[in-house]
Computed example of a mutant assay.
Amino acid sequence: MLELSIQVLSKGDVPDVDELVIDAANHVVGRLASTVATLALKGKRVVIVNAEKAVVTGDFNSILEQFKVKLTIVRTHYNPERTGPKTPRRPDRVLRRAIRGMLPYDKQKGKAALGRIKIYLGTPASYYNKPKYVVKGAYFHMIPGSPYTTLEDIWRSIDPKTWAVWRESYDKFKKAIEKKGEQK
């Protein structure tokens, strides 16, 4: 088993590293997005791993219904036959869209900040042994009975075929990484 170092990132902290690797597991999507947007505007490169484990607070059925409404019912005024706007389904793209909404992406500094952010499903091999940060203000403390769901659960309910393909390949990748770690 590989040992991972985890560091806590408080509000207003800007670590003195080239690239921040943030583990999105058990982080509330909106709070994480605002912190990442602030760091990117300050000039830091931010990598978010495990985007599928980010948390959306609220009842699962109401959240799923909101996503389905965005995907199917919303139509444009000038072309009612076409659905739009384009709504992301994958967790990494949902999180990227949330971060983009907190940036002035129509201005040059917002475009540059969005370019400094990378979001991944799972943990790529290149970031597997790097120290990960946990954002203190965005971390979701699980209280028994509080309603929440992960972005992966929403994705599995909306697009099960794509989710199944990804899950199978990611499980194979994790087994290969663990096997390689045991051999060393």
Rank of each mutant, 00 (worst) to 15 (best):
K179W: 06
P15L: 06
I143R: 12
V74H: 13
L71N: 10
R31L: 03
Y139E: 13
V28W: 06
G115W: 00
A25G: 08
T38P: 04
V49G: 04
K11E: 15
I117A: 14
T83P: 05
V69E: 15
T87Y: 04
K109P: 13
A164T: 10
I99D: 03
R96L: 05
G122L: 02
R31A: 02
F173K: 05
V165G: 10
R82Y: 11
R90A: 05
R167N: 12
P88C: 07
T38Q: 14
A98R: 07
V47R: 10
S146M: 08
Y139D: 09
V56Q: 13
K44Y: 00
K53F: 09
V14G: 09
E81Q: 14
V46Y: 02
F60Q: 06
S157G: 04
I117M: 14
L151R: 08
L114A: 11
E152R: 12
H77T: 15
H77D: 15
W155G: 02
G137F: 04
N26M: 12
E182I: 01
F67A: 15
K180E: 07
I48D: 11
R116H: 12
A40W: 04
N50Q: 15
A98S: 10
K161Y: 12
W163S: 01
F140C: 08
R75Q: 09
K184Y: 12
R167T: 07
E168R: 01
A33W: 02
R82G: 10
T162K: 14
P144V: 11
V74K: 15
K161H: 13
R93M: 12
I99F: 03
G43K: 01
I63Q: 04
D59V: 00
K130Q: 12
R45N: 12
V69P: 08
A37I: 01
D23S: 05
I6H: 08
L2G: 03
G181D: 14
K44P: 03
R167F: 08
E3Y: 02
F173L: 05
D16C: 08
S157K: 09
L9N: 03
I143N: 11
S157P: 01
M102I: 03
H27N: 00
I154F: 03
I48W: 06
V56I: 15
R96G: 04
E65N: 08
R93A: 09
I63L: 08
S62D: 13
G181H: 07
D153L: 10
V165F: 07
K179L: 11
V74Q: 14
V28L: 08
I158Q: 01
A113F: 01
K109T: 14
W163H: 03
D18F: 15
